[in-house]
Write a protein that binds this DNA or RNA. Structure first.
Lengths: 190, 190
DNA sequence: TCGCGATGTTTATGCTGTTAACATGCCAAT
DNA sequence: ATTGGCATGTTAACAGCATAAACATCGCGA
């Protein structure tokens, strides 16, 4: 571990600390002052590494999308195709959301500020595109292109909505209920 | 219009102004200072009517849930029963969310802070219970109680998730696509 | 008529994100 | 090897926020 300067690698340390808080707390304090204090550094030091607070949050959200996407990809590969496989991937999404509530919230809060139709796609937009492609890939093969798109949106909406309702305390988390709800969709009449 | 005091009826005026902003802006400024300023009143005057900012937001969110619930009830009554009726109610939910993005966000932000299993149910909790009951009531009759609960949660998750994805800019709003996605669910194999 | 409670104002405190001016330490070019 | 400059960190300051306390004013009821 080289310490090229005063602190070492403040940017990486800040992101790591933010990530730890996002993983361990439901409503983490990601204020610049709070982070700087706990990093043993002055209140404004982070401005040497991020233009503003949003940039820090964006970096954390990007890391979050990448983790989520990788998690989903692994689940899809392990579950295999077919309706059972799809259900498994959907359950995985909800389970991940329950385990990472603050991170999922941050992701969707941040991606909402991004212009996903911009000329130069941001890293965030790119990562989200991968996630969406992964979802569409798990759709049954016998569908047309339009049907696949609609089915993918249906699936994404279902698991995302269910996750949000659980995170917002509207529904208590019950793995069996989640599986039942996710399995309830069948695409036979499209 | 009686003016019983200095301002008239500051509490009602503040709620009305907040509601107008929630209806007309995507990211309304609901800061106490901003509201007070535009109401022509001192920065702290609202503290005579609300214990704190959260109480103001709760009041606005409560009004929002009531409007949403009434809107859904009307849609349900007009659409009638059956699967077509349910689809219509679901589409109505998404349409309302698109037309009232800030209000829907506020509702779910606030209801997340509420302990819905409290001894004395809050007005917010009560209103939300009505909304859920309305959703469950549109479920097909031939289901068992458990099946109805699961189907209601499925439906709620689907439309809520779709609405959130649209509000977060992940999906462009397209009424036909919404109808297709909502109609895609069939409950034949529960 | 008087007084008291309800309503609004003023002032102040501590928090936040953010900027500017200054200090420090390392690396690279001379 | 020395030095100049850039990257990094610190200090001080500002504006805005929610909030609390002390003060002022108005209207209604006793």
């Amino acid at each position: 571990m080289n310490a090229p300067y005063h602190h070492g690698d403040l940017r990486a340390s800040a992101l790591q600390m933010g990530m730890e808080r996002l993983e361990s707390q439901e409503q983490p304090d990601l204020g610049l002052r709070a982070l700087a204090r706990d990093l043993g550094v002055s209140a404004t030091a982070l401005y040497r590494h991020f233009p503003n607070k949003d940039a820090l949050l964006d970096a954390l959200a990007l890391e979050g999308v990448n983790r989520l996407g990788q998690h989903q990809a692994e689940a899809a590969a392990q579950a295999g195709g077919g309706r059972d496989g799809f259900a498994e991937v959907g359950v995985t999404y909800v389970k991940w959301a329950v385990k990472n509530p603050a991170l999922l919230r941050l992701i969707y809060n941040r991606v909402g500020q991004v212009d996903l139709a911009a000329d130069d796609p941001t890293a965030m937009g790119e990562a989200f595109y991968q996630l969406r492609a992964g979802i569409a890939a798990t759709m049954p093969d016998e569908m047309s292109k339009d049907q696949r798109a609609a089915a993918a949106l249906h699936a994404w909406s279902l698991v995302h909505g269910l996750a949000m309702l659980i995170l917002d305390g509207q529904v208590e988390y019950d793995p069996q209920m989640v599986r039942k709800v996710v399995t309830m969709t069948n695409f036979s009449d499209c």
